[in-house]
Write a protein that binds this DNA or RNA. Structure first.
Lengths: 224, 224
DNA sequence: TAACGATCCGGACCGAGGTCCGTTTAATTT
DNA sequence: AAATTAAACGGACCTCGGTCCGGATCGTTA
């Protein structure tokens, strides 16, 4: 098996850094340290992609279509964004960063200052609303199974939840509980429940708050 | 938009029945009511697919490869199984049915007879072990996002969990809690935790039991 | 400003999933 | 047994994601 040496030197976020929870607003301004033409094409591509989403929905965002709409070769799209998921993720990046800023440094109850359980409640409801808005994109941007849980944006969210849980229920296996909670916020599930089952978002929010309460209630010791 | 009238009359399980929790051991013996040649080819295909999995792993199961190995046209594979997911799912069907039988009618604590919370605990651990065995196939058989939660096998599992939850915590929104619990058992997550993070299965099992206990502990009323 | 090397570009190319439709065949009816 | 028809067959064909590599470009060094 030829261990993949990167075909492209500068592909975007080829695979996430391990340091967690940096607020990379400045850290990773994508156009910096990019050759002039490359930066210009990147902008064109994102622009074209956004236009296509607006016109034909996320399903209409074909790599070739984007390339064509941006007057750029197909290879360029892949060099810049790695794959389709990468492109769509980049499209969501702005909203993502805003959200990160909100729960990392914004006002309570989402940001620091409120007790952890309250922050958890706020976090989930915020995510539910955010995902409900961008469902199309969120679904289309889902990574392939093998990197689903390794995707940098998800890792940040997971890390945050795990952190709050450590404060709220230090005795639990917070890593696992965090995965459980994040599962509830999975866009695919949200899509299923709201669009395919017709549940109102309020029910999901109530469900989230209840879930947080159950999970953070002080330890059960029904020894198995 | 042309509302798809089924291209093939007899494609397997084109989309699930709504009745839940039938033990369809007899209900849907696939070869019955299938034309002789069709049944024969179906068998050939499953056989070929299984052989390919054994030899090259699930990744090596190409629709064309299966068709070739079974001495059958490509179109035949798709008519019979709908798509790749359908084929892989059919490959898992036997194990699936066995598992269903175990928790629907087998001996406690998995089957009826034990108190619901205990059955839940047993159910999760059984699923964890089952998925850990067939991870390759389970991952490869994951349905595309839009039908992930509509897939018949998942619906049966979900329905079972919801049923037990209704007995254990009748006041909760059991539908949502069931989704939460099922999320913990998602093969993609199991793969991530065991193979990519190196967690031992025992930790996942302990996590499951703890989760069940937390979730079924009598209602929290920290009114949000 | 000339030359050079790293980076980027573009589009031909490939593989795999999925569709189409003219042809063949199994079951049923007369 | 011949006729009929619904179902199954097969493989050419399409689309789309992803790769490859010869040639163009940028930025730097002299």
């Amino acid at each position: 098996m030829s261990a993949a040496l990167p075909p492209f030197p500068h592909t975007e976020e080829p695979f996430g850094r391990t340091e967690l929870l940096q607020l990379d607003t400045t850290a990773h301004e994508p156009d910096a340290c990019l050759r002039a033409d490359a930066a210009r094409n990147r902008a064109r591509l994102l622009d074209a992609a956004a236009r296509l989403v607006a016109e034909h929905g996320a399903a209409g965002v074909t790599m070739e279509a984007v390339a064509a709409a941006a007057n750029v070769g197909k290879g360029t799209v892949f060099r810049r964004f790695g794959d389709r998921t990468g492109l769509l993720t980049a499209l969501l990046d702005h909203s993502e960063k805003k959200f990160q800023a909100a729960f990392l440094g914004g006002p309570p109850p989402l940001g620091p200052g409120a007790p952890p359980v309250e922050r958890l409640r706020a976090f989930g409801c915020a995510m539910l609303r955010r995902s409900a808005e961008q469902l199309d994109l969120q679904l289309a941007a889902e990574p392939s199974a093998d990197r689903r849980f390794a995707s940098p944006p998800l890792r940040v969210l997971h890390g945050h939840v795990a952190l709050l849980l450590r404060q709220a229920v230090p005795d639990a296996d917070t890593e696992l509980v965090a995965h459980t909670l994040m599962g509830y916020l999975n866009p695919v599930l949200i899509h299923h429940l709201t669009r395919q089952c017709g549940m109102p978002l309020e029910r999901l929010e109530a469900g989230w708050r209840d879930l947080v309460d159950r999970v953070t209630a002080t330890a059960p010791d029904t020894a198995g």
